[in-house]
Design a protein around this nucleic acid. Structure first.
Lengths: 341, 341
DNA sequence: CAATTCTTGATAGGCGTACATCAAAAATTG
DNA sequence: CAATTTTTGATGTACGCCTATCAAGAATTG
């Protein structure tokens, strides 16, 4: 039983290959009746177009654009590297991946960038600030036929077809559960530091964290959030101050960046064994501190996975190929010293 | 700058496309001098054969075989389902995936199966028992030009080109770290249950677990391993007995299957809040018990990921395509109630 | 040096689809 | 019913590589 080709479909439907092709590629100029006849033949024969041949024949490139935030946030830098790696890897397969940097905190700027790149690309992956004008820009792109995927940070109500990132509320809950379990019956205060409350993901993490802490571990009291602005020096100051103000501090959760600052502060104060510290993102500093024991657990999202997933989704939408649901689900990784990758 | 094709290489090397093709596909009948000339041209032009076109042109199918253990171990059943799913998914891309079941505990039987399937397949993925005759069979396959990948359970010294699975020693260490951190300053005994000591992975987990427990948590004493044979009813008995014999039992680690038995035993004895329980593999029972709180953490390997990875590796070896290292690294997942997928 | 073997070139057909073109047939309109 | 528009068929070229064949050239052998 050889492969079923477009020719078999044509014969079975009693039309020419040209017509089948017209139906397949949604070109107009085909009567509804004929379209239906062809489609039924496709279903009956279970015809599956050969994507390899299709991509070979359509010698056009697929063009995707990744829109990332400017700045030197460690995680975002990593993300950028992964995008570059993906670009290189996909090049021989006729997939061109560009990258643009924009100020994510400025909704209008981001929206403007998105508007600009409209017609050049088949798909866009964007680290999205949840802002009305950004939402609007995404709608615009979608209407112009550009597939949009959100990356790392989502805009739930928007027209994006997919979100390649983790559930940050769940991530916050995970942090809280770990904190509670690690602290056991110990009593005291738990400090919470976020990057900026302007970012959706940090707020969600904070929400999830507080939710679990208050419900399940009421013997621990959560201190008001402190903003560290993802800057490690500032985070260090905040941490030091926190320890001074609260001698009974037993736990720390950093929902944002600048983990390095907390590590430094804890070690300077020689409280690293004493205070349970949980943070996000497996950076070099975090990794080493995890091994030393200063950090007790890292909650991570795999940037490489996120980028590869976004690319796969964009590509699948572009030539309407299949998607493997499970493969595109980004996990909330928990890393201890012992299961580091 | 259009794509560099085989024609460009031919011209640059001053030979015909036929010769370039001979070199590329390692066909014989080409002088060393010429081979080198062509290869240098390839390098200079940075020629990358178009894998899409290649796979289209070679109308032969790629044939792979997955060799899994017989029996109704939950994890292995899941693995089998993933193989079936992969087979279906890859079919339209000219990849045929077969599956065979064998008694894994019998080295000779497994080796015999491997010997049999020699010439039909381009690649084999096998859940490998570490046994001399299996090792020998893998060597044989490799020599006959069949790519071999081990799956879930490895044979380190063998000729397999890749292992798609987790580091089980590290998994055991991870379990121990969690156990130690969850128990905090509590004192008492920790029970350890394995499926069978005939399986390499369980031994490794046990080793890793004991290693960390004795070194880092000396205030906890580990009880001698009990064999549960991956059978939940037997595991339940063992657990019940363990609790009776050791009234001061504070933790349980199940390195093998039959987690359901422990769940039942703990809940019957109303010790589920009291005893910290860590197990492997996110089965349905484990999942629900994790949510109820009977299970404190699950250490998991993603069967789907392992199968997909094995297929990617086999395919890459078959048409010497590139591999993404990071993508093929199977993670040791830690699941709490809050980061369930 | 002739006979043989080993290398290479030239060329053609095929893989399954995309895309374009032109003419023929069918449906729609006034 | 003629004129127009829409739909369809037939066909060819392209994508980049694989595979096979045959003849010619080069190197090796005795």
């Amino acid at each position: 039983m050889g492969k079923i080709t477009i020719l078999d479909v044509a014969q079975s439907a009693g039309v020419s290959v040209a017509t089948v092709d017209r139906v397949l590629n949604r070109r107009n100029g085909v009567r509804k009746v004929t379209v239906e006849r062809v489609e039924s033949a496709i279903r009956q024969l279970n015809y599956q177009p050969d994507r390899l041949a299709a991509r070979l024949a359509r010698s056009r490139d697929y063009r995707f654009c990744f829109v990332l935030p400017t700045g030197n946030n460690v995680f975002m830098v990593t993300l950028g590297e992964e995008v570059r790696a993906a670009a290189e890897r996909m090049a021989p397969e006729r997939v061109v991946i560009d990258m643009r940097l924009t100020d994510v905190f400025d909704g209008h700027a981001l929206a403007h960038t998105l508007d600009q790149i409209g017609d050049i690309y088949d798909g866009v992956a964007v680290v999205a600030l949840d802002h009305p004008s950004v939402r609007e820009a995404i709608s615009g792109l979608t209407q112009r036929g550009v597939t949009v995927v959100t990356l790392v940070s989502d805009i739930p109500g928007s027209k994006r077809v997919h979100y390649a990132g983790i559930d940050n509320t769940a991530a916050g809950r995970t942090a809280a559960s770990l904190m509670g379990k690690f602290l056991g019956s110990r009593q005291g205060e738990v400090g919470l530091i976020a990057g900026s409350l302007a970012l959706r993901d940090h707020i969600e993490r904070q929400f999830g964290f507080e939710q679990i802490m208050t419900h399940e571990y009421p013997h621990l009291s959560i201190l008001p959030v402190r903003e560290g602005r993802d800057d490690w020096q500032r985070v260090e100051e905040v941490t030091t101050q926190l320890m001074k103000e609260h001698p009974n501090l037993v736990g720390l959760y950093n929902a944002g960046g600048g983990t390095r600052g907390i590590i430094t502060a804890l070690e300077k104060a020689k409280r690293e064994r004493d205070i349970v510290f949980i943070a996000h993102e497996l950076t070099d500093h975090a990794r080493k501190a995890l091994i030393r024991g200063t950090v007790d657990a890292i909650i991570n999202q795999d940037a490489g996975h996120e980028v590869r997933s976004a690319v796969r989704v964009l590509l699948a939408k572009a030539d309407n190929g299949p998607l493997i649901e499970a493969q595109e689900r980004i996990r909330i990784d928990i890393f201890l010293r012992d299961n580091l990758p």
